[in-house]
Write a protein that binds this DNA or RNA. Sequence first.
DNA 1: CCCCTGACATCAA
DNA 2: TTTGATGCCAGGG
Length: 110
Amino acid sequence: MVLQKNARDIEFKKQQIWTVVSAIPYGCVASYGQIATMAGLPNYARFVGSCLKNLPKDTLLPWHRIINSQGKISFPLDSARFFRQKELLEKEHVLVSNGRVSLKKYQWNV
DNA sequence: CCCCTGACATCAA
DNA sequence: TTTGATGCCAGGG
């Protein structure tokens, strides 16, 4: 993929990321870097985060299934965002203890 | 144009 | 295993 730097391509990249994120199955988790790579955008892990941060509160995207490369939630343990993500994960039977998720990453069939 | 920041990743020590 | 330095990319000042 040709990586240019104009607004149109940025939008395209966001769509790629959203597509991949929405494809994460129920009860599974993936890392930012993995999402970026699967979207055809290696090294865009950071960009994945910046895309998710301004999602509407009622978004349908399963953003809570995205964690960092250490298998942990990327929020301070005492933050409201952290609890929201943890709650959504546990609703899918994914346990979270001390920020760590009870699942291995990359755990679904593509 | 430079510098800093951020829901990150990777590697060396 | 944990920590600090580097690399990464887009945005904002």
